[in-house]
Every structure is written in C-alpha cells, then in structure tokens.
C-alpha cells in the first residue's frame, strides 16, 4: 500500500500528472477523490477496497472539465478495458491518462466471474488468472425457445426503469440515449415496454460491453442483464473475431468495415 502511495506521490510531485483519481476512506465508506499536489497529505487516506467503483464514469466528468490536464486514475482490469474503449471512441486522449493498475484478488475475480482481473500494468496486488465461466449462458441455452421467452419476460417484467444499468455503465457515454427516445420506447411511464427496452440496450452493448458486470450489481430488481450482454459479446467474438477492451486501434466491425475490406465472413454469410 505504501508503495502505491509513494508511486502516486512521485507522479504528482514530479508534475507528470496534475491530478490522481482514487478512492479515500470516508467514515468506512470508500468514495472517489481527486488527489492533487497541493493536498498531497490526503494520500494517506488512499484505499483500495474489496469492491469496485465505476472509476471511468468519474474520470469522464473530470476530463470534460479539464480536457488538457494529465490525470492519473486507479484502474482494475475492467476499468482498464473501459479506458481502451473510451480512447477508441474518442472520449479520452490516452496520452493524457495515466492508469495506475490494481490487480484483483482471487476472491474478487471469482465473485465477478472476471476473465481478465488485471490491468495492462500492475502497480498494486498480485496478478491472478481469470475465470472462464459461461454457466449463465448455458443455463439459458438449455431451455427451448418458449421457455427462454418466458424466463426473460419474467425477468424483464421486474424492471422498475431506474436506468441504473445505464447510469453505472462505463460504456454509456452517448450524449443522447436511445432509451429516452420517445419514437423508439415509450417515455414517461413505468414499467417500461418489454422486451424492447432491454433489447435495445443489449444490442447496443454489442461491440461495446467490456463485461465488468456493474450493471447487474446495480440492478435493484436483480435482472441477469450481464448474461444478455455476455451473449452479444460472445457473438461478436465468434462471428467477427472482435473483442472489446483489447486493442485501442481495432475498430468496431458493426460501425467500420475494417482492414479486411469488403469480405463477408463465411460464418455470417450462412446465417
């Protein structure tokens, strides 16, 4: 922990970064805090808690306010994937962001079912192997079509339209949200229209979702949203060989044709 504090302190004092976004302990509750050179003593309160916080959401707000400053940010594996996607979508400039990596513990990786619980560069914690678990998808796939529809409609009908899944999502950075577009989904009423409300978000997550699972953690109705997004994520990998959060310079094949030009992958042509 001291090593991490000293590393951040060095970055701040040398002027390499003007601010560092981390978490501090505030009466037992870790909350986000922007550390600066002027208040360097606050670094003593820097904590790495056993749960996740949507760091990139906060980072985006800071970057919008101070677009020319270099900002350090504490990232876990999922936050790091988010940074790659945000840079790809031109929401941040990656050379103005200095990620300070934290590797997740084995317990956290398992509870998150995380396939990559470590960032590109690790400054704190030990790297553990990811978990490959698609049991949630297999459970749905074992049902027949009408069983699946019953299952999902039952899940979707629990929705209270709190937009929690969208608000916590590090990939939901659009200025205008389709879920508030009255021509597509009925606005100003609860419960939402199902299944379109959830499917719009699900499709939008194709080529976007970094599989952090915060949506499912945030959902007060315990809708297994992550399985939906994992499904489209898996499809993108199977059909188009595209995995989000891997390479900043690889473009979303649903928006760009890419370097393979005009070929249609045979797997797709058969469908």
């Amino acid at each position: 922990m001291d090593k991490l504090r000293n590393y951040v302190k060095e970055l701040l004092e040398s002027g390499e970064i003007t601010g560092f976004l981390g978490l501090i302990d505030d009466g037992g509750h870790p909350i986000p805090h922007l550390f600066t050179k002027e208040h360097i003593d606050r670094l003593n309160d820097l904590v790495v808690p056993d749960f996740r916080y949507p760091m990139t959401d906060i980072l985006l707000k800071i970057v919008r306010k101070y677009p020319e400053s270099t900002i350090g940010v504490m990232v876990r594996g999922c936050d790091d994937r988010a940074l790659i996607e945000l840079a790809k979508n031109q929401k941040i400039m990656s050379d103005l962001i200095r990620p300070v990596g934290v590797a997740c513990s084995k317990e956290m990786a398992e509870s998150c079912r995380c396939s990559q619980p470590y960032p590109r560069e690790i400054h704190y914690g030990e790297k553990v192997e990811g978990v490959q678990d698609r049991s949630d998808l297999e459970e749905v796939e074992s049902m027949d079509l009408s069983g699946r529809l019953d299952y999902w409609m039952g899940q979707f009908s629990k929705c209270i339209k709190c937009y929690g899944c969208r608000n916590i999502c590090s990939m939901c950075f659009c200025d205008q949200c389709t879920l508030e577009d009255e021509t597509l989904v009925m606005t100003g009423q609860t419960p939402p229209e199902i299944p379109i409300f959830h499917l719009i978000r699900a499709f939008h997550m194709a080529g976007r979702c970094i599989d952090c699972g915060l949506c499912e953690e945030a959902c007060p109705a315990h809708i297994p949203l992550r399985s939906l997004y994992r499904k489209v994520r898996e499809d993108m990998a199977n059909y188009l060989g595209y995995v989000t959060g891997k390479d900043e310079y690889e473009k979303d094949p649903l928006e760009f044709l890419g370097s393979e030009g005009y070929e249609v992958p045979s797997k797709i042509d058969e469908t």
Partner: peptide, 8 residues
Amino acid sequence: DLLKFIGI
C-alpha cells in the same frame, strides 16, 4: 442470435 437467445 440475440433474438434466439431471448426466445424468439
């Protein structure tokens, strides 16, 4: 594939 997954 998404439609199939939710049962359509």
